[in-house]
């Protein structure tokens, strides 16, 4: 039984529908030119835009979940993090469970004002927030390391790998960096003209 099954999904700019499955503990890498619809595909899976198609978790249709329940279970980390309270800590339900150490962040960062944090710190905190608040069973990562240096990129990759290993979560990782996708995912696909093309050979 697959963890997440995507059936005939068609985000608004796609001409054709997409179907694929994600097993528990599996990671899929997605790449493609800017504007090909990678982000729209992830938004459609968490149900942020109107679209055709069905998504099932453990074979249970999405409509059987309330919208908030679905989005807590299938968590999307968008490329730009957003904050609406003064400090980072105020955004966390249980600050003590946030994997700050693994992301190279000091606990004192939770008390700092959001405006004082660098974009890289905010980006890492956003992942910590998503994991700590919701413990999603499926993790959709939209360019999670786009603005990070090599060390922090490595920290994120390691944290996601550990999370996947410990919880059996499924991962869909979107990136422009094919070498990264080969490190972090079991299968890689390229989105082209609204279709998924499997990337067979490494470095293609």
């Amino acid at each position: 039984m697959s963890l997440l099954r995507i059936e005939q999904l068609r985000p608004c700019i796609f001409r054709k529908t997409l179907s694929f499955e994600l097993e528990s503990g599996e990671s899929i890498g997605l790449t493609g030119a800017s504007g090909c619809g990678k982000s729209l595909l992830l938004r459609a899976i968490v149900d942020l835009d109107e679209h055709e198609g069905e998504v099932l978790l453990d074979e249970v249709p999405r409509a059987d979940f309330s919208a908030p329940e679905w989005r807590r279970t299938v968590g999307l980390l968008p490329p730009e993090s957003r904050w609406w309270k003064e400090s980072a800590g105020a955004h966390l339900r249980t600050p003590e469970t946030a994997p700050l150490d693994a992301l190279g962040l000091e606990p004192s960062i939770l008390k700092q004002a959001i405006a004082e944090l660098s974009s890289g710190e905010r980006q890492r905190l956003a992942l910590a927030r998503l994991l700590a608040n919701n413990q999603p069973r499926v993790l959709l990562l939209d360019e999670p390391t786009a603005n990070l240096d090599a060390l922090n990129t490595q920290r994120i990759e390691a944290l996601v790998a550990a999370y996947r290993h410990d919880t059996g979560a499924g991962i869909i990782w979107v990136s422009h960096d094919l070498a990264q996708l080969q490190r972090v995912s079991d299968r890689q696909y390229r989105i082209e003209a609204g279709k998924l093309h499997a990337i067979e050979e490494p470095g293609q």
């Binding site: 942020l48 908030p68 989005r71 968008p78 609406w84 927030r129 608040n133 919701n134």
Partner: peptide
């Protein structure tokens, strides 16, 4: 809208997401 959607993505309901 970025903030509203970020709050929805974290599993808040519409009422909380637009509360402020």
């Amino acid at each position: 809208r970025g903030v509203i959607e970020a709050r929805l993505m974290l599993g808040e309901d519409w009422n909380e997401a637009i509360g402020n």
